[in-house]
Write a protein that binds this DNA or RNA. Sequence first.
DNA 1: GAAGTTTCTGCATACGTATGCAAATTGAAG
DNA 2: CTTCAATTTGCATACGTATGCAGAAACTTC
Lengths: 343, 343
Amino acid sequence: MVSEKVTSIEVAKRAGVSQSAVSRVFTPGASVSPKMAEKVLKAAEELGYRPNVLARSLITGRSRIIGLVVAYLENQFYPDALEKLSNALQQHGYHILVFMVSNDDASVDKVMGELLDYQVDGIITASVGMSNALAARCSAAGVPVVLFNRGQDDDRLNQVTSNNLDGGRQIADFLVAGDHKKIAHIAGWSGSSTGRDREAGFRSGLEQAGAELVACIDGMYNRETAAAATRELFSGKDRPDAVFVGNDHMAFAVMDVLRFELKLDLPGDVSVVGYDDVPLASWPAYDLTTLRQPSNRMVEATVSTLLGWIEEGSKDVQKIEIDGSLMIRGSARIPEGWPDERL
Amino acid sequence: MVSEKVTSIEVAKRAGVSQSAVSRVFTPGASVSPKMAEKVLKAAEELGYRPNVLARSLITGRSRIIGLVVAYLENQFYPDALEKLSNALQQHGYHILVFMVSNDDASVDKVMGELLDYQVDGIITASVGMSNALAARCSAAGVPVVLFNRGQDDDRLNQVTSNNLDGGRQIADFLVAGDHKKIAHIAGWSGSSTGRDREAGFRSGLEQAGAELVACIDGMYNRETAAAATRELFSGKDRPDAVFVGNDHMAFAVMDVLRFELKLDLPGDVSVVGYDDVPLASWPAYDLTTLRQPSNRMVEATVSTLLGWIEEGSKDVQKIEIDGSLMIRGSARIPEGWPDERL
DNA sequence: GAAGTTTCTGCATACGTATGCAAATTGAAG
DNA sequence: CTTCAATTTGCATACGTATGCAGAAACTTC
């Protein structure tokens, strides 16, 4: 309990040793005698000394800070991921510096520059891409990057996603098996790999099953856009009997419009399937059938990839895809004889 | 676009000037001639130089990092606040270092220690309190603290909350005016000031109106606990006809149990009122009547308090309370003649 | 063009820590 | 007790930047 900042020099003085000794006591793995350690720790305790991480990082070249770039926390998937990432990294002695961006290259570039100024040891971007120039800069600066829930064709960028192609296909199979005849898609933002891959998987699944996609609108991963798309799709006489929505966040908006504006019954009149399996999807008010992105495993993969680069000097760019599985609930008609494990 | 890290010395060399000159060019408000600036900026551009924030902070004593301590991001109110805080601070050139904790003193203390190691310029805790010892340490280290959405009796800690007492009272008035006879409360965590104040305001409001609280259970700001409390409250014959739930996050769980387990009609059989007005509350699937905490204004107050301390050396501890207003929606019976502005 | 004033610039040092190196201490072995 | 190896310690320096100070340069003004 003391005045301002206490430095290792003051501790050294009080303990009657050199500053280097103090430093060594606080450096795991350094060579110190038990006596020394005891003296120093006592003095440190009395003065309330704690090493200055910033000064340390200046010399070690490691800040133990991970930059996290994230575009929107409105979609529950991301706060959830943030929490898990933060916890996992904290466990390894790292902490997260958060940067909010809007999802356009200019904004990302600006912010990412600030990030590098902080000498972060690594960068995680949650569902945001980055320009080639930027990827080059990070790579040049020796700062590993992991794209979380986002793919990008760049052989300097690690990425961890779920298997979006396969997910799209699983949903196609499920809807076709459920004997739906007019299947529509409110797609994820076409500017993102996740949106494109889910759509591609879905289309290929339908095709393979001999079914047809009657309509497809880009929902931009946005509630309002998705709601508008729903109104458009269901305005005509010939409305769809099933719609796969590019993520849960939009699916909730879609369900709201279907049930409360258009007074349709789910799954009687129309089936809705989402993607992500955020916690809200399992709450009874929505009870949304959706493809689970296993965020735990995605976080694990992200952290271990990042730490591999940082601590073990790995240079292997990882493109990791994790399989998800369909969570069958009440928002979509369940095919007869389908392995019915409601969750 | 270059190899590893570029320092001001290399820039100086290339521009044919001294290192101090380079530093001055990148220090706003320092004295440099236009020629000099031009030469330096050119060299910096060519080398891809950017000042090292950490090294700078070592000498200026300012890291431009704000530590944010947060317990759970599951309640939508917090990601929302985080996003707003981050954006506001980014605007002022600060960034947020996130620390997740479980809400007990030991965990908070540990984490907060790590926080101080990073030489943060200030600390915001979102809905978590801190021990006196810790408050003393921060104060001694000259690091201002703002408790966001949490009150604590300590004259070293700034705090920004909504007016929880008044909010509780407003809800009491509303329910009494709605002619409810058996009013219950599923309270916020009694270990938090927000929970206690809302309950106290609610009780005082009821009392003043001559009404009675028939039951009160601590919901711990937790979905499961709130659900269990609901089952308990509504198991007997003599069930409540209104329940005020300590925050929206729990209120959703309560509504789920009432509607989908107990098959009760809202607001026909029972009225539910929440607290916070998170985005989900206005979605039609819940359409929850709730007291809005004006997070925009709370964030503003938090940021300006913090910056006041950091940049203007303010020493006035602020205890700010911001008034909220009731958002009347469909989950609770609306009193006759009540100014009916449904939102 | 000289004297005085203002604006710029470079030198040197400081911030708080980690670490290579050599000196000092300890312990083991004979 | 001596010798040698192993361990521990202190000294000095480095990390990348900002800033007080004094000298240099550029302008004013007469």
